[in-house]
């Protein structure tokens, strides 16, 4: 459904941010792109979003090449990036301006209700906590019902408890609409908590190093042995030691083939 074909982005000569990334994402799949900072994962996400143009290669959604921001692709940034002069409801409805007002209100109210923010519509963004603001920004991207939702380290600025609760909110929203979800993260636990598949990137040059399926049952128990093993496999891929026989064994344990 979403296809990346040998995608490269070179900012300056000799500094390839992303090189030769090919990826096939199924409809409704949740993919975590995991990597340390500077490995090109944010660059990759921006290419998929159409915010930046690739140097080589293509991104295509259901056969249509993505060259600019596309109505079927929603983006959630690392910071909430709410517009401070719009209240919460207006921020959520930002992408719905070409809809009739009544429909807009209905969809915004339903969305706020779903993440526990009913009654917050008239508040200003500055009155929200970090977790509330990020929920509003996720709603803003999802309320237009995109087929693909791209998220760039959306929870990295939040504390662990808030992050875990937002994971639940996000999975609840995904359950309702089943968009394809691509989450960039450097948090291995987040990847295992959310994703069907972890794409591990390594830096210099930014490239895909491993593609690890995570078919743990949902809802996922963060304390289960399978969860811990899956984290260990991703960590091994991150530091490049996945080749070790032990890691290969663990990868099978976490759920099958990982190339």
């Amino acid at each position: 459904m979403l296809q990346l074909e040998s995608l490269s982005k070179i900012f300056a000569p000799d500094i390839p941010a992303v090189t030769g990334v090919s990826l096939d994402v199924a409809p409704g799949e949740i993919v975590a792109i995991v990597g340390s900072s500077g490995c090109g994962k944010t660059t990759l996400l921006r290419l998929i979003a159409g915010l930046d143009a690739p140097t080589r290669g293509t991104v295509s959604l259901e056969g249509e090449t993505i060259r600019a921001p596309h109505p079927a692709i929603g983006v959630v940034f690392q910071e909430p990036r709410l517009l401070p002069w719009l209240n919460v409801a207006q921020n959520v409805g930002f992408g719905l301006m070409d809809h009739a007002a009544a429909e807009r209100y209905d969809r915004v109210d339903a969305a706020l209700l779903r993440v526990g923010l009913a009654g917050y519509g008239a508040r200003w963004p500055r009155e929200l906590s970090g977790g509330q603001a990020q929920r509003v920004s996720i709603l803003r991207a999802l309320v237009t019902e995109p087929k693909v939702l791209l998220m760039d380290e959306p929870f990295s600025a939040l504390d662990a408890l808030t992050r875990a609760s937002l994971h639940d909110h996000l999975l609840g929203l995904w359950e309702a609409q089943r968009p394809t979800l691509i989450v960039v993260t450097h948090d291995v636990e987040e990847a295992v908590a959310l994703a069907d598949r972890a794409v591990v990137m390594q830096p210099r040059p930014g490239r895909v190093f491993a593609d690890i399926p995570l078919d743990l049952p949902r809802p996922r128990d963060r304390l289960s042995p399978a969860f811990t093993e899956a984290k260990r496999v991703i960590l091994a891929a991150l530091d490049g030691s996945l080749e070790a026989p032990n890691a290969r064994e663990k990868a099978k344990y976490a759920g099958g083939a990982w190339w």
């Binding site: 979003a49 915010l51 600019a68 921001p69 596309h70 109505p71 929603g74 983006v75 940034f77 910071e79 990036r81 517009l83 930002f94 992408g95």
Partner: peptide, 11 residues
């Protein structure tokens, strides 16, 4: 610029 980018993302 980050806020301008929100506008771009919404075309």
């Amino acid at each position: 610029r980050k806020i301008i980018e929100v506008g771009r993302a919404f075309r």
